[in-house]
């Protein structure tokens, strides 16, 4: 039993070096998403009446495909960072917290890979 406060015990041990990475990643993905989301909303409005072939032609066009892949990557990176913080704040049981965070990160990886692969398939050859 020590009477030192946790702060006194931590003092002088040096920083953990990587503590701000999560915060920064949330910020730069947010910054990237500002123009990407504005582009996406305007584009979806412009293609509201599209039938299947027009929609696929739009998704597969070079500029759209590149921006969609960037959007998907930024959305899922940003989203899993945010959901991680929500889990850390509200799931107080250590095991459940870890399980939820793993599920969030695993889900984000699977969904983003599926979405990116779909865009690439349309852009690089189109559906059979």
């Amino acid at each position: 039993m020590t009477l030192k406060t946790p702060l006194a015990r931590a003092r002088g041990l040096g920083s953990a070096k990587t503590g701000a990475e999560h915060w920064w990643a949330e910020r730069w993905t947010a910054l990237a998403l500002v123009p990407l989301v504005i582009w996406f909303v305007i584009s979806v409005i412009a293609h509201m009446g599209d039938d299947y072939s027009a929609a696929v032609a739009w998704i597969g066009s070079p500029v759209t495909a590149v921006l969609l892949v960037l959007l998907i990557a930024a959305v899922f990176h940003h989203g899993q960072l945010g959901l991680q913080v929500v889990a850390e704040d509200y799931v107080h049981d250590e095991r459940w917290k870890l399980a939820v965070i793993f599920a969030v990160k695993g889900g984000a990886i699977m969904l983003s890979v599926a979405a990116i692969l779909a865009v690439l398939r349309i852009a690089l050859g189109g559906p059979a």
Binding site: Y52, V56, A115, A118, I122
Partner: peptide, 9 residues
């Protein structure tokens, strides 16, 4: 979003 893109593909 994912469903829409995967369905389009």
């Amino acid at each position: 979003l994912v469903w829409w893109l995967v369905a389009a593909a």
